[in-house]
Amino acid sequence: MSSVSIAARRESVLLPLFLLIITTIYLATALQITPQFDEGLVGPSFVPVLASLLMYLALFFVFRDALKAPKPALETLESASEGEAETEAEEKPSLAAPIKIVCVTGLYIAVFKTVGYPIATFLYVYALLYLFKLENARQVRRIIYSAIITGVFYVLFAVIFQVRLPLLEGLLP
């Protein structure tokens, strides 16, 4: 089996596995809920327990479908030339960019209140434009675009909708 198909199959099992763990934690927590007054069977933990059991059932079908998925034919794999493989590698979707965006976004959220909207947003937009490969050769344009986007949305939120956005709150005395 090619590395691509192995990775695809692994991914199709990893997510339900993650959900299985989450459901188990959820069910364990649901069973520990203590009602304030007795409602019989249908207390505060009734629907969470029911939802967990149904989730197990649904995940069983998802696992079954993932494991039953047809394996790619051997000759198809062998016929793929090296050139095709290279092209595929170039165009193949990659998790690298989403991971970088998540990191940058997490950082933006972390400093948003401290650094303030203008600086945090300017840097965030700049980073996104870089990650989305906008005019990578032209730094100045990217800086200008970042400033414009930051300014436009400042006007939209702070001026038009009169929302109080943080402005260097954490840095000013």
């Binding site: 976004t105 972390a110 948003f112 937009v125 989305f132 906008l134 986007i149 930051t150 436009v152 929302v163």
Partner: peptide, 23 residues
């Protein structure tokens, strides 16, 4: 698309902040 998605990201995140003023 780079400009478009950068704008969407700012509206989405700042919009989320606006609702409760909480990161």
């Amino acid at each position: 698309k780079a400009l478009l998605y950068s704008c969407i990201a700012v509206v989405a995140l700042v919009g989320s902040y606006v609702a409760t003023y909480s990161p």
